[in-house]
Design a protein around this nucleic acid. Structure first.
Lengths: 151, 151
DNA sequence: TATTGTTATACTCTATAACTATA
DNA sequence: TATAGTTATAGAGTATAACAATA
């Protein structure tokens, strides 16, 4: 038995990136027949849940450069899944909203994505998944350290 | 307060990919002055710990295509951090080993990487990090499901 | 002056296929 | 016939810089 002999190690950064790659690959495979990627699916999910969002908000949430949001929204718009609407309150902004067709596509896609994620997380029970979610949330969205101003 | 209003959600796949991206970005920033990337650093770490490995073993461990290993090993070799040695037992294989200079570079790099990772995981105490490591290990390296053969 | 969306560009990653030399 | 390493190439993903319209 020669393979696997090097060992995946205890490197937590490597583990994070391998787990993430596994999740993204599984989700992309599940979404391919729906003409969606992990990214465009996540974007669609966000605008559906929020009932619309500016591109700046989407960029902040997904930690992407605004210019990448342009391309993603273009893609969703071309497929009729989303629309850009002018924002009367601030004419610099555009409100990105899902179309009915987009909501429909999202519902079908969600089932496939949840199934694929379930396969990736297969070994973990519900409580363990919740623990993982909580730990990751604290990495991704850390509360700002209490400002102890030394005057 | 308009930004952050969309919310990072409870999507565990998104959380995984955001956390991973944060870790990789921090490590890359820490490694840049050392002429190493997260990838080449991890590869160097593997061959040092294992005392040498075939490119196939490295590809399996890092879940990369063998062709990507070629480029990474080329890079390490050009910088004098690693060497390819013929394997007398199987002349198809090459044993990738670290040089003294590679081991030296790794030790300096490791301090920087650990510091950057510590910043990313800042909020989590040692026990929580261990929990995270254990959960991720079970996602990345799942035990094969017990084969229940229905005869 | 600063912010939103946009275009352009370059660079890294990732995914595939095909080739060679060895087994 | 299968495996280890290699080359080539195309497609995603990422990172920057600069610009027009608006605040």
């Amino acid at each position: 038995m020669t393979s696997q002999s090097v060992g995946a190690s205890d490197n937590i950064g490597l583990l994070l990136s391998l787990a993430s790659a596994q999740g993204v690959a599984a989700a992309n495979a599940a979404l391919r027949p729906m003409d969606l990627s992990t990214r465009s699916y996540t974007l669609l999910e966000l605008i559906i849940r929020a009932g619309g969002a500016s591109q700046r908000e989407l960029a902040d949430t997904l930690r992407l450069d605004p210019s990448q949001i342009v391309a993603l929204v273009d893609g969703l718009e071309q497929r009729g899944f989303a629309q850009r609407r002018p924002n009367a309150a601030d004419r610099r902004q555009k409100s990105v909203v899902a179309t009915n067709r987009g909501r429909q596509a999202y519902r079908r896609a969600r089932d496939r994505v949840e199934a694929s994620l379930d396969e990736v997380l297969g070994e973990l029970d519900e409580a363990e998944r919740e623990t993982l979610r909580a730990l990751l949330t604290r990495i991704v969205h850390p509360r700002p350290a209490t400002v102890e101003r030394v005057s």
